[in-house]
Simulated assay, not measured.
Amino acid sequence: MAQRPARRPSRPSVTWDTVELAPVVLVQGAEGLLVDRAVDRLRVLAREADSEVEVVELEASTYASGMLAVETSPSLFADRRHVVVHGVEATSDAFITDMIAYLDAPADDVVVVLEHRGGQRGKKLLDAVKAHGGPVVACEPIKKDSDKSAFVTTEMRTLGRRADAGAVRALVEALGSDLRELAAACSRLAADTTGTITEAVVGRYYGGRVEATGFRVADAAVAGNEGEAVSLLRHALATGVDPVPIVAVLAMKLRTLAKVAAMRGRRHLSAADLGMAPWQVDRARKDLQHWTPEALAEAITAVAEADAQVKGAGRDPVYAVERAVLRIAAAARA
């Protein structure tokens, strides 16, 4: 019986903007923007390598046995082919079987790109691809504000523009919950403005979004500005913002204060150690000037109670979040 070729060790993950062509490339993660960018980059690289490359699109969910062999078998004219398989997270069993078999003898002059947007379906196939040593593009959601800030800075640099720290912060606060929207905002600002992009420029384009977000509510409450905090909260709720994410932002703001407060006297710790951007640490230090440990504990308790109430423990989520904002503002003034 013929022995199968020894499997190569899996390679470390690469980013969407550094991945190169290979016989089989796995693009994996739940951040759709990064998945799309990785797939688009590979398609562009294939066309740069051969302007007449044939691009084939397959859907893993509707795949029938033998389709991969048809698309990857040698053609009469020996044309290069670039096969993109979408929706591997919902793949048919037939594709798993055919693709695993294909890994042992990938076709010459063919690139197969597997697009998997998260979940456990197809895990056997994903493990097999990684075991064969093909590149894996990691496209996980960007959750930390510091990473979102880095994303904005990189986007602007790629677009040939510069945004100052205030502009980056304002964009993340206004649009950071949706990476596609954040990227689109960078493109719009780069196209519509000149010079360095400042916080004032962002305000002209996205001021309404900035001021209606939970971040502005949290900033006002932490500063002890009760009237402003409640006004912003009511405006946010009136424009369709759900109480749950507002409470989550309040909690995040207070956790940031608690983390930075714990840094006092520990000079060896940096913003990176806390998973924050430097501007976040600087802002927290400024906020902490009028906070006592007891007041911070009271505010954290208020948010914890509101979190339970907006998630079903209370009858009125709007009242719960407004009460939490009032308690935070009062604690800030204590």
Rank of each mutant, 00 (worst) to 15 (best):
D17W: 05
P135M: 02
R315D: 12
D282G: 07
R266F: 11
I197L: 06
G314K: 04
T97F: 10
G29I: 09
A190Y: 00
R121C: 02
E228C: 02
E89I: 02
R234P: 06
R37L: 13
Q28I: 14
R266V: 12
L58C: 06
V247S: 00
V70L: 15
G32I: 09
S177T: 09
R7Q: 14
A78M: 11
L45P: 06
R188I: 12
Y205G: 09
L33M: 09
V19L: 07
A191E: 09
F215Y: 15
V201P: 03
A200M: 11
L296T: 06
A262I: 08
E305N: 10
I96S: 15
V129L: 06
D108A: 15
A218L: 06
R169I: 11
A313P: 08
H268L: 08
C186L: 06
G32F: 10
T256W: 04
Q28K: 14
L237W: 05
D164C: 02
Y319K: 07
A170K: 04
R255Y: 11
L33V: 08
R169Q: 14
L171E: 01
T62R: 11
A6E: 15
K124N: 12
P12L: 05
M99D: 00
D287C: 12
R8F: 05
S270V: 07
A236M: 01
T196L: 07
A170L: 13
V222H: 09
A212M: 08
V244L: 05
E211K: 14
T18R: 11
A313Q: 13
D40W: 08
H235A: 10
V70D: 15
P317A: 01
T154E: 13
V222T: 11
A320Y: 00
E211H: 13
A2M: 10
V113P: 11
I142T: 09
A212G: 10
R81K: 09
R234M: 04
E155V: 08
R162P: 04
V25A: 01
A313F: 15
A277L: 05
L45E: 03
T292K: 11
G176S: 08
D219H: 14
L175S: 01
A190N: 01
G32T: 14
A324H: 10
V325F: 09
D273L: 01
Y63A: 04
A101R: 12
E298C: 10
V136C: 02
A331M: 00
R327I: 12
L326Y: 12
G275P: 09
E226G: 12
G29F: 08
P106N: 07
I246N: 02
H235W: 10
D192I: 14
A90C: 03
F215L: 13
